[in-house]
């Protein structure tokens, strides 16, 4: 898809979501939560494009949530742009350090190590009495550039989250058109060849990891503000697992479908937890089985994905 059409498409989608939110206030909260989760999933998708699956995306989701939470709760900073800025800085720093450890790993080793790292944070948060332990704590009276968000200000919250989601999509789109972004898809296919082209596979893994961490942290900070609460569950591996499920559902061929998948899942969940609380995970599991078996395209990032045939050459 060329750039002009892509930007037109996301502009239209952005306006559409804003309109739907305006017309149906009852779903604003759900939409906003789905979009903030979608940001974390978008990060995951960017990694999948480089052939990596993280089972620890919750680590940075929680970092984002807790950064926003701690700053507002303990240091009385209530401006969301500052909170999110801090979340971005902190997640970048942490991801940079961690990336040197994990860049050596691929496949299931990468998946497991990211999982274990998120469990380190979980273990710390659960036992930290100052941060409310297992219960977490509340995040209240947040404003974005002076406008109240979170709590009952649901439509303005939705617009803010929507802005960040669109920003995340644009940033990911631009990155995928840089040299590193291009090489990332080669990495998924054939790492030896990438190294023999003079590019560093580990460096590309590190860049993908940091980028993905930042997206997750923004998502986490926004989710914390929206829900008005953060707790260690954000770092728990089941949260990361849910992100993986959404990413698989959306596939990694598009930067927009992760958000759509997050939305679908939030809707299904809001009904399932109400009417069939003990079969929600079962349904989720069966959906994954079916996707892998029948729709490998939904699994695009893990298997095959291809843009349409490009320019014809010569004959």
């Amino acid at each position: 898809m060329n750039a002009a059409r892509f930007f037109a498409l996301i502009a239209i989608l952005g306006v559409a979501v804003a309109c739907v939110g305006y017309a149906f206030p009852a779903i604003n909260f759900l939409l906003a939560v789905a979009l903030s989760k979608g940001l974390a999933v978008l990060g995951l998708v960017m990694m999948m494009r480089a052939g990596l699956v993280s089972f620890g995306q919750g680590l940075f989701y929680a970092i984002g949530g807790y950064t926003a939470g701690i700053l507002s709760h303990l240091y009385k900073v209530h401006e969301a742009s500052l909170l999110i800025g801090a979340a971005v800085l902190l997640s970048t720093g942490l991801a940079l350090v961690v990336s040197f450890l994990i860049a050596r790993y691929r496949d299931i080793f990468f998946a497991m190590l990211t999982l274990a790292l998120s469990m380190i944070l979980y273990g710390l948060l659960v036992k930290s009495a100052a941060l409310g332990g297992t219960d977490g704590f509340n995040v209240k009276s947040i404003t974005f550039l002076g406008m109240p968000i979170g709590g009952t200000a649901r439509y303005s919250s939705l617009l803010v989250v929507l802005g960040f989601a669109l920003g995340g999509i644009v940033a990911s789109y631009v990155y995928s058109r840089t040299a590193f972004g291009r090489l990332a898809e080669g990495l998924k296919e054939n790492e030896i060849r990438v190294e023999y082209l003079g590019a560093s596979a580990d460096l590309i893994v590190r860049i993908s990891y940091v980028g993905s961490a930042v997206l997750a942290a923004i998502g986490g900070a926004l989710a914390g503000i929206l829900v008005g609460h953060v707790d260690p569950e954000m770092a728990f591996w089941a949260t990361s697992g849910e992100f993986v499920v959404i990413a698989v559902l959306g596939g990694s061929a598009s930067l927009i479908t992760p958000f759509a998948a997050a939305l679908v899942l939030e809707f299904v969940r809001s009904y399932a937890t109400q009417y069939a609380p003990n079969t929600w995970q079962l349904v989720l599991g069966v959906i994954i089985f079916a996707l892998i078996l029948f729709l490998p395209a939904g699994l695009a990032g893990l298997h095959k994905r291809r843009k349409h045939a490009k320019t014809t050459v010569g004959a």
Partner: peptide, 30 residues
């Protein structure tokens, strides 16, 4: 179940067993 997914990449199998985990969690509750 696993037979159906024979020959897939290890990372895909990781997802399959994750789905299995989700299914078994609820199956046990049922």
């Amino acid at each position: 179940i696993l037979r159906l997914f024979g020959g897939r990449d290890p990372i895909v199998m990781l997802l399959v067993t994750y789905a299995l985990f989700l299914v078994l969690e609820d199956a046990i509750k049922l």
